[in-house]
Amino acid sequence: MNHLKTTRLALAATLSCAFLLPLAALADDQSPREATIIVSGEGDAAIAPDMAILNLSVVREAETAEEALRANSQAMSEVLADLKTKSIAERDMQTSNFSVDPLYRQDKTDDGSYVAPVIVGYRVSNGLTLRVRDLTKLGTLIDAAVKLGVNQGGGITFTNDNPEAAITEARKKAVATAIEKAKVLTEAAGVKLGRVIEISENFARPMPQPMYRAAMAKEMSDAAPIAAGENQYTVTVNITYAIAQ
């Protein structure tokens, strides 16, 4: 009998705890939240590029895929060999976007309908991505590549091999701007700035700029003029502060 009574008391205590726990959690949820202020600051730093990414393509068409491939390979081999003589390292040359595509012709009948398309030839495209670390050679490289058979591409992206110093400078400017903004806002509101709760950042690399898009004439008497300009690195910093009570 005593054992049964003890068991009932233990069960009642367990049920009481089970009901009290949600109430305690609810009480915690309803407790006053810490007052905060969220500010953001943007900083940027501009530096001259020291490297260019150049995209070139050799495109050849022929009646058969074999003929188109042979002509394309010969032209690209000459381009690669010439680039090596101009001190472009193999690590800075990469094949990209290689493709073999059929060329179709679709004739129209007398009644206005179309017959089934037929293959009339093949197009072989072989892309080449170059990292040019000496920007003074860029125009000459484009000129030589076109004369050797490059007939598509020409998109250039100016970049920096190691932009960390500029990014660090942009970060410092962004943080300083955010801190100053927080001070102004809290002073205007008549409250005091408390501890830092959270810091986050958004970093945007410079957008690729197609400074040169080659029409790829068969002959170019002068090296293509190139203007590198500057790259601007932008950082946005978000800081969450507590408001001192």
Results as ranks from 00 to 15, higher is better:
Arg205Pro: 03
Gly153Trp: 03
Thr140Val: 10
Asp28Asn: 12
Asn72Ile: 05
Ala25Ile: 15
Thr159Lys: 00
Asp82Leu: 11
Ile142Leu: 10
Leu56Phe: 06
Arg70Ile: 13
Gly153Val: 04
Thr14Lys: 01
Asp111Phe: 07
Gln152Met: 02
His3Leu: 11
Thr64Pro: 05
Arg171Tyr: 13
Lys181Met: 11
Ala65Asn: 08
Asn126Glu: 15
Gly155Trp: 02
Lys183His: 13
Thr168Phe: 03
Ala176Ile: 09
Lys5Ala: 13
Gln209Thr: 05
Gly154His: 05
Gln232Asp: 14
Thr129His: 01
Glu90Ser: 11
Thr95His: 00
Lys183Ile: 10
Ala242His: 12
Val124Ala: 02
Glu164Ala: 09
Ala48His: 00
Met1Trp: 10
Leu128Lys: 06
Val237Gly: 10
Pro22Phe: 04
Tyr241Phe: 15
Pro225Met: 06
Phe158Lys: 05
Thr177Ile: 00
Glu164Cys: 01
Ala242Ser: 15
Gln106Trp: 11
Arg213Trp: 13
Ala65Pro: 08
Asp50Met: 07
Arg195Cys: 06
Gln245Ala: 11
Ser113Ile: 12
Asp107Val: 12
Arg123Phe: 02
Arg131Met: 07
Glu201Gln: 14
Glu187Gly: 12
Ile119Thr: 13
Glu201Asp: 15
Lys86Phe: 13
Leu11Trp: 02
Pro206Asp: 09
Ser200Leu: 11
Met220Cys: 08
Val58Arg: 00
Pro22Trp: 04
Met51Gly: 03
Pro22Asn: 07
Pro225Gln: 06
Pro163Asn: 07
Asp101Gln: 10
Pro206Arg: 03
Glu66Ala: 12
Gly154Cys: 06
Val59Asn: 01
Ser40Val: 12
Ala144Lys: 05
Val132Gly: 05
Asn238Phe: 13
Leu193Trp: 07
Ala75Gln: 02
Asp28Gly: 12
Gln209Met: 05
Ala166His: 07
Leu141Val: 15
Lys183Leu: 13
Thr129Asp: 06
Ser73Tyr: 05
Ala65Asp: 11
Leu26Asp: 14
Leu148Trp: 06
Gly41Arg: 01
Ile226Leu: 09
Lys192Met: 00
Ile142Ser: 01
Ala217Lys: 08
Ile199Ser: 05
Gln106Thr: 15
Asp111Thr: 11
Ser77Val: 02
Leu69Ile: 06
Ala81Ile: 02
Lys172Gly: 00
Glu63His: 04
Pro210Asn: 12
Leu15Trp: 04
Gly154Phe: 04
Leu138Val: 13
Val184Gly: 10
